[in-house]
Design a protein around this nucleic acid. Sequence first.
DNA 1: ACACGTGTTATGCG
DNA 2: TCGCATAACACGTG
Length: 282
Amino acid sequence: MPELPEVESARAVIERKGLRRRIVDVDDSDSYVCRPHAPGEIRHALLGGVLIAAMRRGKSMWCQTDPSSGDITLGIHLGMSGKIVIADANGTEVDGGDYWEGRRQPGDYRWARFTLTFADGGRLMLVDPRRLGRVRLNPPVEQLGPDAQLITPAQFRAVLAAGSSAPVKARIMDQRRIAGIGNLLADEILWRARIHPARAVSSLTAGEQGRLLRATRDTIRAALRDGGVHTLTIIPYRRPGGTCPRDHAPMRTAAVDGRTSWWCSAEQLLVPGAADGQHNVK
DNA sequence: ACACGTGTTATGCG
DNA sequence: TCGCATAACACGTG
């Protein structure tokens, strides 16, 4: 489910199948997903218009509308379980992106929380069982940090600016500082960089910072190429009894930044040089 | 039955 | 005001 690679896939769905089509109906009646708008507000803003571009920064997407709609953007966030789906007039699912999504079958729209209907009867839907996704007008995307896929070395150094005792995992998941990294990407990035998730940002050496940037880039590139975060190397080993696919040491787990975290007990040490045995065995 | 969770945000504290 | 930790949000899944 959605981290940067999945959101990019969803953005591409909109770009392929959702642009330049006249919007003749809008279902924005789910007031939780469409908060803080009142039901009908988004509908009123979009009715009769068309989407002309689909943009993304981190895990946030937004669509530009034609100028006659008044420079409005339609923001979509997938939350924990959201997915963008395009159906044709018959209800057949035409495009839902190319990443793994669990058991939901194409054509199952039971959890459609927001729908645009186009003039030809086709539909663009946000399908989201848990309803933690969001749809809103003019989202404040400028509050996000640079996109994790495009971040420059100088920008990445700023993300790791000294003087913080925060865990490095919390820092790279802070969307205001760098946008797009979620729990699974973070675990894979830190595993590739051989850095313990709870290490304080201020304790990282220059060498570790360099490894972190490289791992961030390599991880995101691989996930985009291979079909989402579920294709990452360590995913099958994030389980009780899992062993590190590099050195076969036991994988360790604990909550870091309030999120379930997994790391290699031999290569990712909290205290340099010390064995990890006393820490965080769940 | 009940705990868990791949995301965000309000709230409280120093 | 800032950084950080925690709970809450909604609901399907194991």
